[in-house]
């Protein structure tokens, strides 16, 4: 008789259970293992989604449990899609999303390209660069608030040092023109290392032999960069864009900490607006419709993007 761990486990299984299992097919056993996960997924993800869709057609307010819940059809959707304030919020979100992605991809890729070179202290620099993404967004929001302080903030002093302007003459988080850039800068500082790591993985996956062959063909470094590095790292870059896009579409904590959505509504992103509707105004039906619209938008865009990503990978 063998004495492997599996045999031991079989021996320890009570006779009743082992008899029952012996009569089950492989498929049935697989279902037994998968069922808890599927049940959990249904309970945690699918059921709330269906419930939210149902609520989005009602005037339900969670803070008025005694009120009658009326079926309002598409009224919530119509109100949201015709509300100019919500379109302004969408615009602010798009501005934030586009610029953070552009900056993070450019800077992240450049850093990855530099870090990919072999030099002394490479590991130390990688650790230092990655440090911001290890912090909590609330902490980052808090200390950038201090950095942006016109009287004592380091950021204003640095800008003043290079431009000669009075540090107290501008307020990054209090000015309608500067506040959208204030949140972009803070987010870029925090999440560029993440993009860098993905790009670094992409760059390190390119075999040296391809570059050696290019050298033999007397291809310039510039040409190698555009015809080898970029195309081969592109799927990784696109993956980074996908991750950052989804993450920043639901950006909340950092911006709330930095600007609270202000000045005015300048930095009120959709997630902040949705939270106000759902948990401050308690318009549950309305905010459910809002959430459904955002979900469809993100899901739709992400699906199109993933298809494009797969095509790039197939090339």
């Amino acid at each position: 008789m063998t004495d492997t761990p599996i045999d031991k486990a079989v021996q320890r299984t009570p006779e009743g259970i082992s008899r029952r299992i012996r009569g089950l097919s492989d498929r049935a056993i697989a279902w037994i293992f998968v069922a808890p996960t599927i049940f959990l997924l249904l309970a945690v993800n699918i059921f709330p989604l269906i419930w939210t869709i149902r609520l989005s057609f009602t005037n339900f307010r969670v803070n008025r449990p005694n009120n009658d819940v009326e079926w309002v059809g598409l009224r919530n959707y119509q109100r949201i899609l015709t509300d100019p304030d919500i379109w302004n919020t969408m615009q602010a979100t798009a501005h934030f999303l586009i610029w953070t992605i552009i900056l993070q991809v450019l800077i992240g890729f450049a850093l990855a390209f530099l870090i990919n070179k072999k030099f002394k202290g490479n590991d130390l620099w990688t650790t230092i660069i990655v440090f911001p993404m290890m912090l909590s967004p609330a902490v980052v929001g808090n200390f950038w608030t201090f950095l942006y302080q016109p009287q004592i903030g380091l950021f204003n002093y640095v800008i003043a040092f290079f431009t000669g302007a009075d540090p107290a003459s501008f307020s990054m988080i209090g000015d309608v023109h500067l506040a959208p850039w204030a949140i972009i800068i803070a987010d870029t500082w925090m999440w560029t290392p993440f993009v860098m790591l993905i790009c670094l993985a992409g760059l390190r996956s390119i075999p040296d032999s391809i570059y050696e062959a290019a050298e033999c063909d007397r291809a310039s470094k510039w040409r190698q960069f555009w015809t080898i590095t970029i195309p081969m790292a592109l799927p990784f870059l696109m993956l980074a864009v996908l991750f950052r896009g989804i993450e920043n579409f639901k950006m909340f904590d950092l911006v709330v900490q930095l600007t609270g959505g202000g000045p005015g509504n300048t930095t009120t992103l959709t997630s902040i607006d949705l939270k106000r509707e759902a948990f401050e105004k308690w318009r549950t039906g309305y905010s459910s419709a809002y959430a459904v619209i955002l979900f469809v938008t993100v899901f739709g865009l992400a699906s199109i993007y993933v298809k494009a990503l797969n095509k790039v990978k197939e090339r």
């Binding site: 803070n63 008025r64 304030d85 209090g174 309608v176 202000g262 000045p263 005015g264 509504n265 300048t266 106000r276 401050e280 105004k281 308690w282 318009r283």
Partner: peptide, 23 residues
């Protein structure tokens, strides 16, 4: 009012837009 939060959020938004953002 029971709807004080709705009333407050509207006021916050309108006031901040004018006083701080100069809109």
């Amino acid at each position: 009012e029971p709807a004080y939060a709705d009333l407050l959020i509207s006021m916050q938004e309108r006031l901040h837009n004018y006083v701080i953002a100069g809109d």
